[in-house]
Every structure is written in structure tokens, then in C-alpha cells.
Design a protein around this nucleic acid. Structure first.
Lengths: 130, 130
DNA sequence: TGTTGCGTTGACGCCGACGGCAAGGTTTAG
DNA sequence: CTAAACCTTGCCGTCGGCGTCAACGCAACA
């Protein structure tokens, strides 16, 4: 499988696949003419990468999952390093949820006050004798 | 008040204040030698900018709040444009909270499955006759 | 043999809020 | 006179995951 076919089957671009390679996530063989040649297992790897990116992981965090797949596991999640990343990410998400909740409350209050203020001003304006 | 003093009083840097100026958020006068001269009201403006940035607004979103303050209001929140931004941002935050909640659930499940898998493997290994 | 359609590497662009540096002018104090 | 401590404009660097050329090589078909 050449790079164009893998890109299409994975729903991404050749540029993206070359980029993953520079980041050490995908390792194609090379044919005699220098073309990248991927075997079918790499499709699985690219799907794993894309799925984790979609969840908000960066490429460094994804590396252990790829390694886990390459080690022959049916899932990229089951290796100790992957589990460690999952734990850390879950904690990060929890943190972020907390902060975002605080932001939400602040925005809500700010909005409520602003609207209350406008109500007051509006009433004063309506009651003002012209 | 010169730029260094404003920076210190606002808890930021001169570089930041010049940047805000290029983005149209702060407008100092100029003294005879070309130095930026700020009046005290600008301190309030810079505080407003910093507070909204901390909440996750970008500079374009902040512009109406600054204009509202400049129009003489006691709060930057009370003008219609500011309220519109507040509403939009609140909706964005709610969206993001939903998606982040979904991500959290997925991470949690993934982690649970991975750990369950490792338990199984561990048990098989322990029961295997060497 | 020319065209079309693959592939290759390399390098710059993007976004946002600045940091940092260069190269200079001004003001004040010693 | 000079040093220090301000100020000015201008431009490049940062981070991540690519997009988008440019300039070229290789393959296959009419």
C-alpha cells in the first residue's frame, strides 16, 4: 500500500502521514524507487492516532498507544504506558471541567448582573418625565 | 502615567500594552518626545482586558467591553454588544462542557476496559503452569 | 514521446498573545 | 561627560498539526 491509498483509506492526507512519520508514529518500508510502502496493520495505527487526536491528545501522548498496538495487542490501551497516559489525561480533563465550570458560573453571573442593570436603567428611563 | 508605570500597576508588561494598542484596545496620548501617556482610566481598561482574557475571551471579543467602559459606564458588561458577547460565550462554554463531558466518559470507559483486560491477562498468567 | 498522475524532499504559512532583542532617542543624576 | 533608566519602532521566535506550494523523479498509457 502506497501513501495515497493509506491516506484515502484512513480518511486523511499524505501530508499528515508524512508528518506522523517525522514524529516517529508511523514507519513505512521503502520500495526500490524510494516510495513509502505501508502494510495493512498501519491502517489500524493511523486510525488509533486519529481517534486519540479527536479526543484531545497530542502526538507525544499517542506514541505509547501506537507502540502498544505494534507490540501485538488487540487494543492500544492495554499497556502500562498507555494506561498511565489515560489516567493523566482523565485527571487533566477533570481539572479542566472544574475550571470551565467556574468560568461558566462567572459568565452566568456577569450576564445576570448586566441584564439586571439594564432593567433598572430602562425603568428609570421609562419613568423619567420628558 | 508612562507605559512602564501602567504596566507595573496593571501587573503586566510594556510589550503587552503596546500589543493591545496595535489591536485597538488602548489609546494613549503622546507627549512631546513621543512617549505614550496614559490617564488613570486606562488602568481600569487594562484590568478589564486582563480579567476577560483570563476567562478565555480573545481580544476581539473584549473590544466591546472596553468601548462600554470608555462610554462612561461603571461596568464594561452593561452595553448591548457586551451582553451579546457574554451570551455567545456562555453558549460556547456550555457546548464545550458537553463535549468535554463526552470525552471524559470515553476516557473513563477506555481506562476501565484497559484495566479489566489487564486483570484478565494477569489472572491467566498467574494460573498458567510454568 | 508526451501527458497524466502518482511519488519524493524542503520550506514557508497559519493562528494568538505576546517575549525578546536590536538599535536608537531622552532624561536625570553623579 | 557619562552612565543608568527610561522610552521608541521593528522584526523574529514560540507552539502543534498540519495546508500549500515548488521543483523534481518515476510509472503507465496513448
Amino acid at each position: 500500500m502506497l501513501i495515497g491509498e493509506l491516506a484515502e483509506r484512513a480518511g486523511t492526507s499524505t501530508r499528515t502521514l508524512r508528518y506522523y512519520e517525522t514524529r516517529g508514529l508511523v514507519r513505512p518500508r521503502r520500495s526500490a524507487n524510494g516510495y513509502r510502502v505501508y502494510d495493512d496493520a498501519e491502517l489500524r495505527v493511523v486510525h488509533e492516532i486519529r481517534a486519540l487526536l479527536a479526543v484531545g491528545f497530542d502526538l507525544d501522548d499517542i506514541r505509547p498507544f501506537v507502540a502498544c498496538l505494534r507490540a501485538g495487542n488487540s487494543s492500544g490501551d492495554v499497556c502500562p504506558d498507555s494506561v498511565a497516559v489515560l489516567r493523566r489525561k482523565l485527571a487533566e480533563v477533570d481539572d479542566y471541567l472544574d475550571r470551565l465550570g467556574a468560568v461558566r458560573r462567572q459568565l452566568h453571573d456577569q450576564l445576570a448582573h448586566a441584564i439586571a442593570h439594564r432593567e433598572k436603567t430602562c425603568l428609570r428611563t421609562r419613568n423619567r418625565p420628558d
